Simulated assay, not measured.
Amino acid sequence: MTVERLLPTPEAHDLLDLTAELATRELAGKVDDFEARGEFPREVLRTLGRSGLLGLPYPEADGGAAQPYEVYVQVLEILAGAWLGIAEAVSVHTLSCFPVAGFGTPEQRKMLPEMLGGELLGAYALSEPHGGSDAAGLTTRAVADGGDYVLDGTKAWITHGGKADFYNIFCRTGGPGARGISCVLADASTPGLLPQAPERLMGLRSSAPAQIVLENARVPRDRLVGGENEGFTIAMKALDAGRLGIAACAVGLAQAAVDYATAYAKEREQFGKPIASFQGLGFMLADMATGVSAARALLLHAARLKDAGRPFTVEAAKAKLFATDMAMRVTTDAVQVLGGYGYSADHPVERWFREAKVLQIVEGTNQIQRLVIAREMTR
Results as ranks from 00 to 15, higher is better:
Arg5Asn: 10
Thr9Gln: 06
Thr9Met: 01
Glu11Gln: 08
Ala12Arg: 00
Asp14Gln: 08
Leu16Gly: 02
Leu16Asp: 06
Asp17Gly: 12
Ala23Trp: 03
Arg25Ser: 08
Leu27Thr: 04
Ala28Gln: 11
Val31Pro: 03
Asp32Tyr: 00
Phe34Tyr: 12
Glu35Cys: 04
Arg37Tyr: 02
Arg37Lys: 12
Glu43Cys: 02
Gly49Leu: 00
Ser51Arg: 14
Ser51Gly: 11
Gly52Asp: 02
Leu56Trp: 08
Asp62Cys: 12
Gly63Glu: 01
Val75Gln: 04
Val90Met: 08
Ser96Cys: 08
Thr105His: 12
Gln108Asn: 08
Leu120Asp: 01
Gly132Ser: 11
Ala136His: 12
Ala136Cys: 11
Ala142Pro: 01
Asp148Val: 11
Asp148Trp: 09
Tyr149Val: 05
Tyr149Ser: 01
Tyr149Asn: 04
Val150Glu: 09
Gly162Glu: 01
Asp165Lys: 00
Asn168Met: 09
Phe170Gln: 07
Gly174Asn: 02
Gly175Pro: 05
Pro176Phe: 12
Gly177Pro: 03
Gly177Arg: 07
Ala178Cys: 00
Gly180Ile: 00
Ser182Gln: 06
Cys183Lys: 04
Val184Tyr: 00
Gln196Cys: 13
Gln196Tyr: 10
Ala197Leu: 06
Pro198Lys: 12
Pro198Leu: 14
Glu199Gly: 07
Arg200Trp: 10
Leu204Gly: 06
Ser206Cys: 08
Leu214Thr: 01
Asn216Ile: 07
Gly227Tyr: 13
Asn229Phe: 01
Gly231Ile: 06
Met236Trp: 07
Asp240Trp: 03
Ala248Pro: 05
Val251Asp: 01
Gln255Ala: 14
Ala257Phe: 07
Val258Ala: 07
Asp259Met: 02
Thr262Phe: 11
Lys266Asn: 10
Phe271Tyr: 13
Gly272Trp: 12
Gly272Glu: 12
Lys273Ser: 15
Ile275Arg: 01
Ala276Cys: 03
Leu281Pro: 08
Leu285Ile: 02
Leu285Met: 03
Ala297Cys: 05
Ala302Val: 04
Val314Thr: 11
Glu315Met: 02
Ala316Leu: 03
Asp333Glu: 14
Leu338Phe: 00
Leu338Asp: 00
Gly339Leu: 03
Tyr341Asn: 10
Tyr341Arg: 14
Asp346Tyr: 14
His347Gly: 04
Glu350Ser: 09
Arg351Val: 09
Ala356Cys: 05
Lys357Gly: 10
Ile361Gln: 03
Ile361Cys: 05
Thr365His: 15
Asn366Ile: 13
Ile368Trp: 02
Val372Cys: 09
Ala374Trp: 14
Ala374Cys: 15
